[in-house]
Nucleic acid binder design. Sequence first.
DNA 1: GTTGCCGGGAT
DNA 2: ATCCCGGCAAC
Length: 261
Amino acid sequence: MAAAALTSLSTSPLLLGAPAVAFSTEPSLEPWREAPVRPPGSSGSSGDGGWGPTSDQSSPSTPSPPLPPEAAHFLFGEPALRKRKGLFQCLWKRCGKVLSSASGMQRHIRLVHLGRQAEPEQSDGEEDFYYTELDVGVDSLTDGLSGLTPGSPTASTPPALPRLEPLEPPALPSLLRPPALPPPPVLSSLPAPQGCLAPVHPEPQPIPVRACAPALPAKPGANPRKPRGDAKKCRKVYGMDHRDLWCTACRWKKACQRFLD
DNA sequence: GTTGCCGGGAT
DNA sequence: ATCCCGGCAAC
């Protein structure tokens, strides 16, 4: 078992034609991906790890995936002409697999996580919910390494992909469709589920802009209780039965972390 | 009546 | 730290 897992890991899992896991209609024994190789400083993975904005800076374990040769062109070119190459990352907990095609990612999710047979035709699109597209633009990089001149070809460090932490296991039975995630309001241009915010400068909105009343200096100590968002939360979405599908916060009667306001 | 969740308790 | 619930206010 372990040997099989190791071999399947060492032999780079990017051959789409040969899925590493070709069995199991059982959707509950897959996420044994290897230990997340955390840097020994940030041990705590921030609370209950729900669908909150957690970002991880660990560099990708596969240094050079078999990308098409033109992928080398988007290194540090002019921002105007820079081509943005989209990658697709599996959001399943502990997986985080990155593929270069959406169809490949859908097949991966369908097979490995959803435990379905590979049926390329007629997918109900449920897989779309479990992966996200990565933009390998360099904005976030040049942001931090502002001193990098475009003339230095000695790219010492590989372009660290902005790694989105796979959120809570989206263990949704196929009968319940996640209601309002794919079409996010108008705030984010990313087709990612809520909670995966930009990996740079999370910058939580200070306060939801309350009170147009006369000058109210926000007295410290007063707790005017939040005005209750209008988003449906786990309880409403999944119902009192299926409580096990709620996010942790909802199960503990805390502020929902999956369906933010 | 229902739903979201703060404050607080138990382990 | 994790887990749960009383009780209140917003629906």
